[in-house]
Design a protein around this nucleic acid. Structure first.
Lengths: 225, 225
DNA sequence: CGGATCTTTGATGCTATTCAAGTCTTGTGG
DNA sequence: CCACAAGACTTGAATAGCATCAAAGATCCG
């Protein structure tokens, strides 16, 4: 499984063997959360198949979706030291998924031994970080419909397309998720999508969305009011 | 200069020599932007002294402040491949500052040779990425006053405190900057700060802010409406 | 002193939220 | 197979919060 990931292509056989020894496969069903040890040890992981969302609980009992993981995306959860997602963040499968995980503490020795592997992870960190930077800039500046357009286009990049429906977002995504990812209310997200559906920009149903007018969505996400 | 940065403490003498050879010092005066080659080659850099903001131009002719750099913070600007800030992003000094820069293309060979250095940069990438994650979550979920409180506390961590005024944000920060960092309008930012000044939470003037009630700001940034 | 920039304040309007009611879809168990 | 409950979605009306527009007041600099 490890060897099949583009993330690890060209990595030395020794490191691959170590990774294969340390990384444990686990499957997560649609809607289920990835469970983590409660003992405070952090986890390093990689998404292999499927798509997952990272939810952050809010003091108001609501949640924000702070990230979306697709195949090949790494994550660092819980624990102390440099970590991406806090111990309260939940990683929930949006479709039947498969992730690899290991103890975070065992990652550093591996990286010290193999600089090519370090570089690969550094590269990915920069790429994903820039992705977040972009999301932040959009949330800071854009109106409701623009944020939704940006988000839908972003989500499309995070899933493995279904053969027969290339523009269908290939995982379960509810109005509630869209709202939690854009900082809008569920009702506003629903209203915007209903409008777009009337205009023929997309088709949608309970938990699924198919983008039928990508160019228009691109324009919308980039227009200068 | 390179050796004095905590970022590079404990790095092998060989790599330090390489870094010292490649990294060029440049000073930036208050309000000035760091200039970059227009030839499309990316730049890797480190902030050494002072504080800088990263501005992203918007289609509406406005700007968003997407990041703030303090001493020891790295950045990757322009160029192709994995890069943090796009070619249109500007890095502007908020106080007289000093940064080290080098050609981004020359970074990878260095990282391949020294895995400890790679690990150090990976660590920082994760830390800063998590910082942005946190900002994103706040912008998604919080009201105007909460966002401003979070931002002020964040900004305080990015400057080197002035000896006589530990709670003074030690660089030039205008209402316009606060607004561009939180996604609010200049007027709203001004109104909230005026209110806080009347309530004795802070003192401020043209371009400066002194936080006089840190615990209250903490509470505000974390309260559940 | 004059000009530029930063800041404040008020009036007005729009956008998105909130609250509420109701419809549709899906899965479950009898 | 049908009834039912839970969850997802829609829609409307009222409201609140923030943006926008406009004008004037501070502060800094040469």
């Amino acid at each position: 499984v490890v060897r099949s990931l583009p993330l690890f292509h060209g990595i030395s056989p020794g490191s691959l063997a170590d990774l294969e020894f340390l990384l444990k496969t686990r499957s997560v069903r649609d809607g289920e959360a990835v469970s983590f040890p409660a003992d405070g040890h952090g986890v390093f992981g990689v998404a292999v198949r499927g798509t997952l969302k990272v939810q952050r609980p809010l003091p108001t009992a609501g949640i924000s979706v702070v990230d979306v993981l697709g195949p090949g995306d790494i994550f660092l959860h819980g624990g102390c030291g440099p970590v991406l997602y806090g111990p309260h963040d939940e990683i929930v499968a949006m479709t039947t998924s498969c992730v690899l995980t290991m103890n975070l503490a065992e990652l550093a020795p591996l990286l010290i031994r193999d600089s090519a592997l370090s570089l690969r992870l550094f590269d990915q960190a920069i790429r994903r970080w820039a992705e977040q930077q972009d999301r932040l800039a959009r949330v800071l500046a854009q109106a409701a419909d623009q944020r939704l357009a940006s988000l839908l286009l972003f989500l499309k990049t995070k899933g493995t397309p279904k053969p027969r429906y290339p523009n269908l977002i290939p995982f379960n995504i509810t109005r509630r998720d869209l709202a939690a990812s854009t900082g809008l209310s569920l009702e506003t997200a629903s209203r915007v999508l209903s409008m777009w559906e009337r205009e023929g920009r997309l088709r949608s149903g309970r938990g699924w969305i198919e983008l039928t007018d990508l160019p228009w969505l691109q324009d919308t996400s980039q227009r200068a009011d």
